[in-house]
Amino acid sequence: MFKPFIRCSIALLFAAASLSSHAADPKPPMPVQEITTYQGADREERLLEGAKKEGEVTVYHAYPQLSNVTAAFTKKYGIKVKNWRSGSEAILQRVVSEARGKKFDVDIIHNNAPESEALHREGLIQPVKSPHLKDIMPAAIPAHGDWVGIAMDVYSAAYNTNSVKKEDLPKSYKDLLDPKWKGKLAVEAEDQGWFNTLVGLMGEQQGLKLFSDIVATNGISMRKGHSLLAQLVASGEVPLALSAYSWTPDLMKEKGAPIQGFLIDPVVAQFSSISMAKRAPHPYAAALFYDFMLTEGEKILADLKFVPTSKVVPSPIPAGTNIKYVDPVQALDNNEKWIKTFQNTMKSGK
Rank of each mutant, 00 (worst) to 15 (best):
F2N: 03
R7T: 11
L13W: 11
A17R: 00
S20Y: 00
H22Q: 06
A23H: 00
P26F: 02
K27F: 00
K27I: 05
V32F: 12
Q33K: 14
T36D: 01
Y38V: 03
Y38F: 15
Y38W: 05
D42C: 06
R46Y: 01
L48I: 08
A51G: 01
E54K: 01
H61G: 13
A72Y: 09
A72C: 10
G78Q: 10
I79L: 11
Q93V: 10
R94S: 14
S97W: 09
K102I: 11
K103N: 13
F104N: 13
F104H: 12
D105K: 09
V106A: 14
D107M: 07
S116K: 03
H120Y: 14
H120V: 15
E122K: 13
G123W: 06
L124K: 03
I125P: 02
Q126Y: 06
P127Q: 08
S130F: 11
S130L: 08
I141Y: 03
H144N: 09
W147Y: 15
V148W: 07
G149D: 09
G149K: 05
V154W: 06
S156L: 08
A157F: 15
Y159G: 00
S163Q: 13
V164E: 14
L169T: 07
K171C: 03
D178P: 00
P179R: 02
K180M: 09
G183Q: 05
A189M: 08
W194Y: 13
F195G: 02
G200F: 09
E204R: 12
T217H: 05
N218A: 03
S221E: 15
R223N: 12
G225E: 11
H226E: 04
Q231R: 10
S235Y: 06
G236V: 15
A241F: 12
A241C: 10
A241L: 12
Y245S: 08
P249M: 07
L251Q: 14
K253V: 05
G256I: 15
P258V: 11
I259C: 06
Q260G: 01
G261W: 14
F262R: 04
L263A: 09
V268G: 04
I274E: 06
S275K: 11
M276P: 00
A277Q: 12
R279T: 09
Y284G: 07
Y284L: 12
A286E: 09
A287P: 03
L288A: 07
Y290Q: 03
F292Q: 02
T295D: 04
E296P: 02
D303M: 06
V307P: 03
V307L: 10
T309Y: 07
S310P: 04
V313S: 01
K324E: 11
A331Q: 14
L332C: 01
W338K: 03
K340A: 15
K340S: 14
T341V: 15
Q343Y: 10
T345W: 06
K347F: 14
K350N: 07
